[in-house]
Design a protein around this nucleic acid. Sequence first.
RNA 1: GUGGGCGUAGCUCAGUCGGUAGAGCAUCGCGUUGUGGUCGCGAGGGUCGCGGGUUCGAAUCCCGUCGCUCACCCCA
Length: 441
Amino acid sequence: MARSTSLSGFTEWLPDERLVELHVLDTLREVFEAHGFASVEARAVETIDTLLQKGEIDKEIYGISRLQDDESSAKDARLALHFDLTVPFARYVVENAGHLAFPFRRYQMQKVWRGERPQEGRYREFTQADIDIVGDGALPFRSDVEMVVVMARALERLPIGDFRLRLNNRKLSEGFYRSIGLEDTAAVLRAIDKLEKIGPEKVAAELSETAGATREQADAALKLAEIRTDDTSFVEQVRALGGEHELLEEGLAELTEVVGELERRVPGRVVADLSIARGLDYYTGTVCETVLVGRESLGSICSGGRYESLASTGKRSFPGVGLSIGVTRLVSQILKDVTATRSVPSAVYMTLRTDEEWGAAQDVADTLRARGIAVEVALTAEKFGKQIRHADRRGIPFVWFTDAEGNHEVKDIRSGEQTPADPQTWTPPLEDAAPRVVPVE
RNA sequence: GUGGGCGUAGCUCAGUCGGUAGAGCAUCGCGUUGUGGUCGCGAGGGUCGCGGGUUCGAAUCCCGUCGCUCACCCCA
């Protein structure tokens, strides 16, 4: 057999699948740029020190080294592949702060690597698409609102079906916990984050163990986490639980603004979900997770939030807000629902009558290409039947024939209809010009 | 890292009690001699993941190993 099996967790799409992925990336780019985000690409490699800065100690990081390492290289900084785009971007901002104009908004679409056990929707190498806005010293809260709106609009343009942005605000949660006397808010958040997975009983137990919560405190924290509204009515529900704290007020105001604005600009996609906590990350305000409706078990396809200190250098600190799409996870799902209309870009397959006429056929092809029509010329003058079949297999919609007298005909491979055509003027219908992404029959 | 399932043709999978390998789809050829798709006929293609053991004989039983996959953990 001697067949090299695919490496688990390192997805390689077939051409038609890749077209779907490209469609996703193109769409995201379009929406991001329409909102003024500039593109940035970071190197794939960081020092391990940089990667570990945010306290993500147990990330499964792929280190890199030369196969033939020697004594001297051991002294060099140890290198590793980045596991997300936020950490490299933070480093990039610090390094290039002098050249950037703040608030700085950028999008970044790159591969990242995580040494995890692969499963459906989980990969060891995958593409993320991030947008962030970073301020110098301060960043208006309005950025949070815009960030979420942009992402919702981007997702709406993708063939992913219905989705929900689940939003919370850490100030709200932390303020509430403090108001009921729970001071170790990080521990509380960590426990609450597991609510959906392990259920209220176990969360309550964890709250008393790790956060020192009484039964009453645990119940109150759980009550807060159960609040879920698709408008700003969560405010009344939180108020009904009592509790007074400056942070709580701030969080309520912020979440109200984000949810309200999102509901106004991208209706029906948002839910205020006060159980969203985002583990032990560095988020300080708005937090967001996104699920595909009906595929909740896949996990979040887009998440992120506000961090007061994305990066800092000396006295300078850079607050930011950002969201990250798991492109590979998303594509792996939508491939079940959509497909490319063909696996190659070619709109026309140029047949070859004799091997000697290849050059002439390329001339005709160039005439079409000059007008933006993608053309592939046959490599050998096989029987026309085989040449047509070659085009058919690839889904190329038109086959071009040139006879000995230099007369041209073009055949629509689907209808079989064949008509005279002029290379100077003939144009395929718009829907056949390039592969499109369409629902599976 | 922990636990379950699975490795046979390009793909999906059969393979009985241990007797040296099969189907469907795909590919290629012919019918149709340079205009495809349907249909019919035919052909090619496998170190049965790898290594060892038991046996006269192993895809089949045993041991090991590698890989894939699902769940846990964590996350996009």
